[in-house]
Nucleic acid binder design. Structure first.
Lengths: 117, 117
DNA sequence: TTGCTGAATCGATGACCGTCGATCTGCAGC
DNA sequence: GCTGCAGATCGACGGTCATCGATTCAGCAA
């Protein structure tokens, strides 16, 4: 499957000014790359990645008070991570009385998974 | 498929000290999370994500001199991004004379894709 | 050897990130 | 009202990041 096609500079000479006019282009456009990178960056932290993992495995809503004792960071730090995930559109939250419940919005993760394909 | 199971605190009372002993655990362990997050972080930048995109679409080796004109950053910045990708084990490089060729090591991306499911 | 070229590295700069303790905001029960 | 709790926000801190121009290094060719 992996064709060992080699993209070489257009000229063999090392001296000529016009070495290589680009013949290779990205398949994802800039905007899409920005969006995908935003999602990837959001899970680019071990705690946030594990948070998403927990929330995905429980296909429902999880109380924050269940999440805090799982990680060795302060409550404010965890809240900060959850906000990052919310800002990236990976999760959303819902308050019920005193407690806050978080759940996964599959769209963002699915987009990234599709690109990684 | 998505069961709307709701994980609530173990006690209904808002006053009691032992509100919620954790019953939900991450499926990926800490080490695996660190590794996956490292890969995600590496593609958590639009330029690096597009770099990986280009290299993946060309299932071969691409000359750096082809990559530089595709992005609106200096040569040193692009070299820095390529190094980040190399450090994360996503790509590797090979020099041939004056030119350097980069190519994808599918392992890292595949790991992340597998977790994203 | 001398000169040029492609790519990596260096040093600096300004922005952002993860973390913490402290504080603030709502809600529940008294 | 008041008190206590869960969670979000604030302010500060040290560390890391993306970016640049300048420099260095290795290879090719007069």
């Amino acid at each position: 499957m992996t064709v060992d096609l080699q993209l070489e500079p257009k000229t063999k000479r090392a001296a000529g000014a016009p070495c290589c006019e680009p013949v290779v282009y990205p398949d994802v456009d800039r905007e899409q790359a920005v969006r995908l990178a935003e999602v990837a960056k959001a899970i680019g932290d071990p705690i946030r990645l594990q948070l998403v993992d927990v929330l995905r495995k429980h296909a429902g809503k999880v109380c924050v008070c269940e999440l805090v004792p799982l990680f060795d960071v302060s409550q404010s730090t965890l809240s900060h991570h959850l906000k990052k995930l919310r800002d990236a559109g990976i999760v959303d939250s819902e308050r019920q009385g005193l407690w806050a419940y978080y759940y996964v919005l599959p769209g963002a993760i699915d987009e990234l998974a599709a690109w990684l394909g």
